[in-house]
Simulated assay, not measured.
Amino acid sequence: MKLENKVTLITGATSGIDKATAKAFGVAGAKVVFSGRREPEGKATEAQLRDAGVDCLFVRSDVSNEAEIKALVQTTVEKFGKLDYAFNNASIEALPKPLHEQSIEDFDELMAINTRGLFLCMKYEIQQMPTQGTGAIVNTSSLGGLIAFPGASPCVASKHAVMGLTRAAALDYAKQGIRINAVTPGATATETLDRSLDRMGLTADDFASTVPMGRIGRVEEIAQAVVFLCSDAASYITGQPLVIDGGFTVS
């Protein structure tokens, strides 16, 4: 999957899957603009990627802020002249609780980032892509966008919304040469998973035993799936979730 002279925008890209994906796009030859709310981590990632030979730029932005997302897309086009791909990965989590114990403040924050933020990202990314006649967008859902988990009603609702936005937008723009898909990762070795397992009193080995493949996913495996969905190798795929879970959902 060679992506020379392509330009990629990644949101939420200061650690974990997003950081690995920024590197994967760069290794494939793409120029990368990535964003997140944590500026020190973003600048550190920018330096690491440049040391690895990636032509990249970090821009601090909050996906729940419309003006900042509009400016992020504009900055990408001003820096590199176009926008070929977007990976919308910014999201947050919530503490596991039954629905009646969930606060409206936590629910609203989840929706502001995971759902409204995704809508804003796609809105401004898609405004740019038709002028080029092509483009590919990948959104991060999760297994919570396909199935449900106890104690996670706000997260599950937000991730189901991600899939709804992905599918509907894919229909809207298919004839304009814009493909829109989603990745739905299972348990992946990230700080987020570590926090979740710690709250449940589980170890990584405990959880790995529930996965048919007997292990937790690696961030690089998610990153390569995102690059694939953006590349011409996936030119006939749109409106689809790519499940990357080691067989968890079929077990």
Rank of each mutant, 00 (worst) to 15 (best):
R167N: 01
K123M: 13
G117V: 00
D172N: 00
L99Q: 09
A161E: 00
A112Y: 07
F34M: 09
T45V: 15
K2S: 08
R116Y: 04
D108A: 12
Y85D: 00
K123W: 06
G29H: 08
A208C: 03
Q48H: 05
M111D: 04
A22D: 10
F248C: 04
N181F: 07
V250E: 05
F25E: 01
V226Y: 12
M213D: 01
L202Y: 08
L110K: 11
A136E: 02
A136S: 14
V27Q: 12
T115Q: 10
M163K: 00
T210W: 11
G201M: 09
D55S: 15
A94N: 14
R218N: 13
D194G: 13
T45Y: 09
A90R: 14
A90K: 14
V156R: 14
S209W: 12
A67K: 13
G177H: 05
M129Q: 01
P96C: 05
A223M: 11
A233I: 04
P241V: 01
T45G: 08
G42E: 12
A223C: 02
H100V: 11
A24H: 10
S141N: 06
T184F: 07
D51C: 07
K79Y: 09
V211F: 11
N139K: 02
K23D: 05
G239I: 00
C155F: 15
G117E: 03
L242H: 13
G186Y: 09
L143S: 03
A47S: 14
K175S: 13
T76P: 00
G16F: 15
E125F: 00
A157F: 07
G81A: 06
M200C: 10
N65Y: 06
V32D: 07
R37W: 13
